[in-house]
Design a protein around this nucleic acid. Structure first.
Lengths: 229, 229
DNA sequence: TCAAAAGTGTTAACCATACACCCATGC
DNA sequence: GCATGGGTGTATGGTTAACACTTTTGA
């Protein structure tokens, strides 16, 4: 069933840069393309925006369809619309980035069409379209955002150790941080609540588990509090 | 001449939030709409993206067509795509924000169709579509960006006094800054070059005029320098 | 008892803030 | 000579950065 308009329209798609963490290494979820263009290449999960669908909804739908992931942290990144970026014709892509908790990682191998695979951000394969550029934009955004918004928690399980948290910052920022200073600072903010649990089954002193207190963060933010590194 | 596609496509537009400065007050450039929907309402300059046109090019083209402004600072802001935002049908708008130098301000009253008028950001009229929301997003972005990128210079003439520059920061951030600390900090960065000129014809000590040294900024940035407030 | 990571304080350098008076100019 | 904004320095408190050893646990 064809759709006709008085003026030409570019196609509108969404693409998702999905960040995850494995063994303290920043990973990205990619999809193997089965059909042209770029058949056999790796690409970001994404697809066309449906009629009367919000952009956020389209991104979430495509993410679930292609990777099985849902209820993740998702934010709009940037819109890419260079005419040459898709050989099939003028396509405007609204890019999103997502952060996936470590314990939800597993991309249901089940999803019919596609193999979704985690790749270390440091060693990405050749990518379809301008997806390499989208990823670079996403990494830069994440590095910037992490300094003034507590979003790194979205990459860890609900309960985590301070060392794990520090590891996320180090993975994202690509530099080492001082352990004592990091703990001092992050605890001084009062956004972490100790749980009564300690990590089990490690061959060394069992570390304390903490939880991020989102309600407290919201409250402090309203009072003009500023999260900083 | 109709254009036909296999699947429905939203229309794609660009909208520009144009910031200017008048007597130290932050202003916005708005267009009076002549035709429905929202005839008689004020709106952001903008329009449809042409076939095989980049988004940036579309934004610049619309800006020039509707306001006569060209060669301004222009950056992508955010993309708004809620299905209800345009009563004519599903329309995705890629919003941009622009900063206009004070000495280029004058929106050629000449541009045929439209009256473009500067409004103080503090006292905006009722706006068409979701343009109020786009503007709020732009103001928030500008306030954030100004702290870590030297973009405020784009709102001043090429040569300006430190008091003028401080005024821009105060207008954008909506709070007073300490004169001595501001000067110390901004001069310490070494991004301002004294010119040999002083401001003329003022009924008090003639202030020194400065210029922003973009080349130096670029060089320092490459070396890892970080502009901060 | 060894290996492995957890946890913990102090000091010194730097940076941010607060604050008030004299200066040059045009009218 | 007066009104107007331009221009300048210091002291204090707070923040960041650098740095090493003891503790707990499981194997």
């Amino acid at each position: 069933m064809p759709f006709t308009y008085e003026y030409p329209r570019p196609a509108v798609t969404v693409d998702c840069v999905v960040f995850g963490l494995d063994q303290g290494v920043l990973q990205l979820l990619l999809i193997k393309r089965n059909s042209p263009p770029f058949a056999g290449c790796w690409a970001l999960p994404g697809g066309f925006v449906d009629q009367n669908e919000t952009l956020d909804a389209a991104a979430r739908r495509e993410l679930e369809e292609e990777t099985g992931l849902r209820e993740v942290f998702l934010e709009q990144l940037f819109t890419f619309g260079d005419p040459g970026r898709d050989p099939r014709g003028h396509t405007v892509s609204v890019a999103y980035y997502a952060l996936v908790r470590q314990d939800r990682h597993v991309p249901q191998a089940a999803t019919d069409t596609s193999d979704a695979v985690w790749y270390s951000v440091a060693k990405l394969p050749k990518l379809a379209f301008d997806h390499q550029r989208i990823i670079s934009t996403a990494v830069a955004r994440l590095q910037g955002k992490v300094r003034y918004q507590p979003i790194n928690f979205e990459l860890l399980p609900r309960k985590f150790t301070l060392t794990e948290l520090q590891g996320v910052y180090e993975a994202v920022l690509e530099r080492a941080l001082d352990k004592r200073n990091f703990r001092k600072k992050i605890l001084a903010m009062g956004l972490l609540a100790e749980t009564k649990e300690k990590q089990q089954g490690v061959a060394h002193r069992a570390p304390q588990l903490y939880q991020f207190d989102a309600a407290k963060y919201k409250k402090l933010t309203k009072q003009g509090f500023n999260f900083e590194l």
